[in-house]
Design a protein around this nucleic acid. Structure first.
Lengths: 330, 330
DNA sequence: CTTGACATGCAAATCGTTTTGGGTTATGCT
DNA sequence: AGCATAACCCAAAACGATTTGCATGTCAAG
């Protein structure tokens, strides 16, 4: 490996001088500059960032910690974050936790050892581990989706409750009164919020909530199938259906197709998330856009401000709005 | 920040001793061990990996360089790679190049400065920049999809030509003789291979290749739509169609639906890649599975062997097989 | 009592940078 | 000429770990 010392020696100057032509922090004679630049090229000198980072006490890198990059929601989020950071030459470590609290804490302590400049974690449940302990390092930290009880942890989330309410209101406006819901696992933050929104919209319209129209799903396509089958076996069949995510809505669509139930004529369906598949499916799914890219980007911006010390006040909470995407299924 | 020196001082021993209890490289008295362990916990000491990496001349990190994590093919690849590496505690940097050669070389030099232990790049076209120069560092490097002319660069790819041939043969076996093709951008490695495979299968069956049945697409859904429209306007309408990727096949499906052309009765369609959407669409798409996860995993394994010096021979080339996924569209 | 082996711990060099407090010249001004 | 100022460069101290050669103490065997 060719080091700055090699360059200095070859140029007959001190290490300091080479460093200065590299950083421009102090003036260096024009001639020296050019000579050194030439030698750097000739030797193929590549500054060792490790040494640099150690000395400068920053790494220009952040950690993105998510459940699973394979879940179609996260690539967009990742891209949003990276786009926000790339301009400022931050590099990104990617970690999958598979939604396991143990992995989550392990990863977090790992990245702290690595001295990343910032951390963003997207989690489905309250963040594991002793956040207080992590935060004693005062490291910029933003949480996506779930809230963290710490005065310095910024947060970005969507208005899931409002989104679910909007979906439900949309169905109500079309005159439906018997509106079923396939929810997510009870206890998960997102599931609860979306269920709450549904109930809220119902209440606004003076339509009573009917437990018989609720089925708990698990956010998978298969779970959606099963939930739909249960729902159809019950005595009262809804005329419209809100699914707490698109995958379950697609599962419901599968069942409908098999049982020759026409969508939206027999049952109108609206999903949540607006994953790619929502537009691929027939009938194309009416759904609520969950702005993953925007969230990632917002997270990146919050992080940047803290990393560059242009902000160091108390925690901020950014809420990115949902958006109703009208397609054929409702 | 609490350093190893703080721990040592508090314990009344030397830095060396603390380091030894941490690494176990030399024996330390049981009592001392426990005392130090206690102090480490008490102080919340987290070894600084930066310093460690600098000293040890390795970072336990690799760079994954891809065109765009948002493209549904890459998350799987990323996950495969990470799963292969995670067991050995390697961390992953993620980079998107947006398929730009400039970005690609910039990223590569960046990660070399960062002293990553290994690099894997998936590119759509021959890797940009002077690979020879990168490689003078002898850094483990694996290329996914495209070949790199360097004796030390390992490579993993799919048998795209065979896959395309298999798709075409499948249609031929079903008796189709007028088989169209919507290809990718000419010049891209993948496009060429898939076109070649199509031609090859045709030739085997003694069916002449007809330029009138070929349209160039661009691997997008919209491109697929347009290509399909062109194809349908031509004098000879094919009875079957091979699309060089699923997105274009889905675009073709869109057009068919609009024009009330029944799939597969009027035209049988087979795609390529088996992205998630292929199973969402109606009729579900018959396609060739492009084993992204397996490729990432294989890449990870090749890299590992080189990083851990369990292999240091000449370049290896691993080819992961395609697989025909029969669904409704053909 | 000597000797060797082992257990235990330390000091100092090292990894490759950045940064700071000078030291020399050359230059401009009075 | 005298003197401040600027331009240019250097030596050495960080940053926080690992590693190596050596010193000391203890104990059992001869």
């Amino acid at each position: 490996m060719v080091t700055i010392a090699d360059v200095a020696e070859r140029a007959g100057v001190s290490i300091t001088t080479v460093s200065h032509v590299l950083s421009g922090k102090r003036p260096v004679a024009r001639a020296t500059q050019e000579r050194i630049a030439g030698i750097i090229k000739e030797l193929g000198f590549r500054p060792n960032e490790l040494a640099r980072n150690l000395r400068m006490q920053r790494t220009q890198s952040v950690a993105l910690i998510i459940p699973d990059i394979t879940n179609p929601y996260y690539p967009m989020l990742a891209r949003g974050l990276q786009d926000a950071l790339a301009d400022n030459r931050y590099h990104t470590f990617l970690y999958n936790t598979d939604n396991s609290p143990e992995q989550e804490t392990e990863v977090i302590t790992d990245v702290l050892r690595r001295q990343v400049d910032g951390i963003v974690v997207a989690s489905l449940r309250p963040i594991a581990g002793n956040v207080q302990e992590f935060m004693e390092e005062h490291i910029p930290f933003v949480s996506i989706g779930v809230s963290v009880e710490h005065p310095l942890v910024d947060q970005v989330s969507t208005d899931d409750e409002e989104g679910a309410a909007a979906a439900t209101r949309y169905l109500l406006q079309q005159g439906y009164r018997s509106i079923g819901i396939i929810g997510g696992m009870l206890g998960m933050v997102t599931s609860n919020l979306r269920l709450d929104g549904y109930k809220k919209a119902l209440a606004e319209a003076g339509v009573p909530f009917r437990p018989a129209l609720f089925v708990e799903g698990d956010f998978t396509r298969l779970g959606g199938r099963q939930a739909m089958q249960h729902l159809l076996q019950r005595s009262e069949r809804p005329t419209a259906l809100f699914c707490a995510n698109d995958l379950m809505a697609i599962g419901a669509l599968d069942v409908a197709r098999e049982q020759h139930i026409h969508i939206p004529e027999d049952i109108a369906i609206v999903g949540y998330d607006d994953i790619d598949a929502a537009s691929f499916v027939t009938p194309a799914l009416t759904t609520i856009l969950n702005p993953a890219y925007e969230m990632g980007k917002a997270a990146g911006e919050l992080l940047l401000e803290r990393m560059q010390q242009t902000y160091d006040g108390p925690r901020r909470q950014i809420v990115i709005s949902h958006q109703l995407i009208r397609r054929q299924s409702a």
